[in-house]
Amino acid sequence: MQCAQIRHTTTAMDDFVWRALAAGLGLAAIAGPLGSFVLWRRMAFFGDALAHSALLGVALGFLLHVDVNLGMVAMCVAFALALTGLLARSRLAPDTLLSISAFTALSAGLVVLSFLDTVRVDLIGYLFGDLLAVSTSDLVWIWGGALVALGGLAALWRPLLATTVHADLAAVEGTRVGHVRLCFVLLLALVVAVAAKIVGALLVTALLIVPAAAARRFARSPEQMAIGAAAIGALSVTGGLVASLLLDTPSGPSIVLTASLLFALSLL
């Protein structure tokens, strides 16, 4: 990124590099376990649709003069609830509905942003991520969001696993399947909103899916896969960040490419 490059060459790079690494690792810690569930529940499209709404959250944040991070979280949560309701009622195939919603949300975000001619928005940063631009307050958001989501996921683990394996069976055995699904969707919305800041709205799903898929080969239990995915995510963040600094490539795509490379290696 241009701005990163200037700082890179002119100032001590320590601060923003460490911030970037801390943000990326915080995200990898939650994206691995949550992404495993996204994989098992086949909700990749759902996560992607949520991410597409993040930009609309940014736009509305600027429009209503509220914190952009808050705008993204609020938007993703609202969009997640709306999508869940629509999916339960609609007769369309889920992937049709999700595609329509995703592109509608993304376009709405872009259109609303175009009305804001007084603010300069780093559109590329929001779409494809800019890890090196993470501020201290972003870091608080990311780690706060990651810790809340990790705690929530840990509390939800057992009923969520039972629901994922077979919802009807879990319901007959006393799991409150509806509650569990709702909590999972809310956690996913929170993490997608927080991650969109780092890897960008268009690449968020990759951070959820690719490390989890790479961990599958080596895992013999759900827990092993979740922890393995977090580890592979951390490796991808670190590798991508280093590559981004050395080669002056954009950070988000570099992280995703590193994860893809690790996935390809896991297949060998």
Binding site: R41, R42, L161, V172, A212, R216
Partner: peptide, 27 residues
């Protein structure tokens, strides 16, 4: 208390789950 055996079910190939873990999900 009801024990339920649903029709043949599919479990995602991406989910690493042993038979013991699957059965133990009952409680």
């Amino acid at each position: 208390t009801i024990g339920y055996m649903p029709q043949k079910i599919e479990i995602d190939a991406n989910l690493p789950l042993s038979v013991a873990r699957f059965v133990g999900l009952a409680g």
